[in-house]
């Protein structure tokens, strides 16, 4: 495995760049980050629409989210890869296809995380905001989202690890990413698939394990903070049931 790393580290890191397209781990991270950056605002918009109480806005989106979550990710890759050229007459490259497919898929998943975060904000705070005459936009931007996103940070980071892993599907449609670079190395070596894919697995594990570790650490911190807040906001049961 050391030999494979010594021989192909640059290929695994940046693909054939600068003699060919950028690829490898660099492209994996670029795809994952791009997807995160585009899908986050989409997810927040979906989550806000679904918690808005406006049925004609929330219901179709709920259906869409359940549809996306109920289908395998590979379907989306194929739909974008084959469907977009058939419908619009334009051909997206492998990388763009991956970004588009992953963005649709992740926006649905992340919207569920954000929705859970929004719904976990204590009702008393929302009511207090109503009572102060704070309008929807301010309530959302200043009260709801800062708390929801902060509480959801560990889940969002874990989701980023999942995006990184999903980029490996890009290999099927020749997106130049880490798995694609590893198969190129494997094709050159021919006889050492175990070593090549062992290095690939280790690479993903270190990256995603590191991300998961950060998420865990944050989760612990947030939990401590929440426990402090809950202790301070403790309402004796007898008082809570009185009307």
């Amino acid at each position: 495995m050391i030999e494979i790393i010594q021989k192909y580290w640059l290929l695994l890191l940046i693909g054939q760049y600068p003699h060919g397209p950028l690829g490898g781990l660099a492209m994996t991270l670029i795809i994952a980050l791009t997807v995160l950056v585009i899908s986050m605002p989409l997810a927040i918009a979906i989550a806000l629409a679904r918690t808005s109480g406006i049925a004609w806005l929330g219901r179709p989106l709920a259906l869409l989210v359940s549809l996306v979550r109920g289908l395998p990710f590979l379907m989306f890759v194929f739909w974008v890869y084959f469907g977009v050229p058939a419908l619009f007459g334009i051909s997206l490259g492998g990388t763009t296809t991956m970004i588009v497919a992953l963005t649709i898929y992740e926006a649905a998943y992340i919207s569920e995380i954000v929705r859970a975060g929004i719904e976990a904000i204590p009702k008393g705070q929302i009511e207090a905001a109503h009572a102060l005459g704070v309008r929807y936009g301010v309530r959302t931007l200043r009260i709801v989202l800062p708390q929801a996103l902060f509480n959801m940070l560990p889940s969002l980071i874990t989701q980023f690890a999942s995006i990184v892993k999903e980029t490996s599907i890009g290999y099927i449609i020749s997106a130049q990413e880490l798995t694609f670079a590893a198969t190129q190395a494997n094709n050159l070596e021919i006889t050492k698939p175990a070593a090549v894919f062992g290095v690939l697995a280790a690479g993903y594990y270190i990256l995603c394990g590191g991300i998961a570790g950060i998420a865990k650490m944050l989760e612990r911190r947030i939990l401590q903070q929440r426990q402090r807040a809950a202790a301070a906001e403790f309402v004796p049961l007898a008082a809570a049931v009185r009307t």
Partner: peptide
Amino acid sequence: VFQSFGLFQH
């Protein structure tokens, strides 16, 4: 003023 304060925790 509410029974359970309703302060914005953040």
